[in-house]
Design a protein around this nucleic acid. Structure first.
Lengths: 114, 114
DNA sequence: CGTCTATTTTACCTTTAGGTTAATTAAAAA
DNA sequence: TTTTTAATTAACCTAAAGGTAAAATAGACG
């Protein structure tokens, strides 16, 4: 019933699976092929392919071509949006939030927050 | 096929819906009843009840009782876990990450990261 | 060409997510 | 006690998520 999801929903949905988060963690260490990414898991290769499509659809990975391999690389940009979103709520758990925010304003005066 | 999800997966799944994120945003402004939370949306009350159960299951809200009302309040603790998780990837988008991390060490030497 | 390796597509299955309407519970209030 | 307001439960529907096995595609290589 939600045919065209907003970006943040797509990102969160992609992150809501431990296999996919493990794939991202692996890619943080560098490029990897589908078979390499599949190795730690007990699920089938087509299942991995599907997970990779979800991650690609969320813009969290990019895919290349080298012969018959499809090397995957991490793209953390959507994670930045997640960080920006969640940091709105920081004041609800961190009482030192105001000091941190002040620091960020001083440190990166050019980076405007929405 | 995933009968008992890990905490982070449950949290991300709860956040993967715009209605639920809007409910959290509303609760950031303070306690609200179910009817109040439902007001901005065009979906039925039972649907809201379900969303609230998902949020409660993820530990993102708590529910009280006042007469026939069930006031909801925000609990941002799981969002802290999200922030901790996503910040692992900060170096992939933020080149000033190292400086920020250093600052955090100086500012909050008592707060250890996992 | 035929074959091996890497990956995807197809077709299918089962469970879950998100929604509905109608009925029910709970508490206040007339 | 009956009614009104607030919210949930029950029963149901449809679509999407996550998985499978088997077949198909793509490219390297003997």
């Amino acid at each position: 019933m939600m045919q065209q999801r907003d970006t943040l929903s797509t990102t969160f949905a992609a992150l809501a699976d431990p296999t996919r988060r493990a794939i991202l963690a692996r890619l943080a260490a560098g490029e990897a092929s589908v078979t390499e990414l599949a190795a730690p898991f007990s699920i089938s290769l087509p299942a991995i392919t599907k997970h990779l499509k979800v991650l690609e659809g969320a813009g969290l990975i990019r895919r290349g071509r080298q012969a018959q391999w499809r090397p995957c690389t991490l793209d953390a940009q959507p994670l930045r949006d997640v960080a920006d979103w969640v940091q709105q709520y920081r004041k609800f758990w961190d009482h030192n939030f105001d000091r941190l925010e002040e620091y960020l304003r001083e440190m990166h005066p050019q980076e405007k927050k929405s």
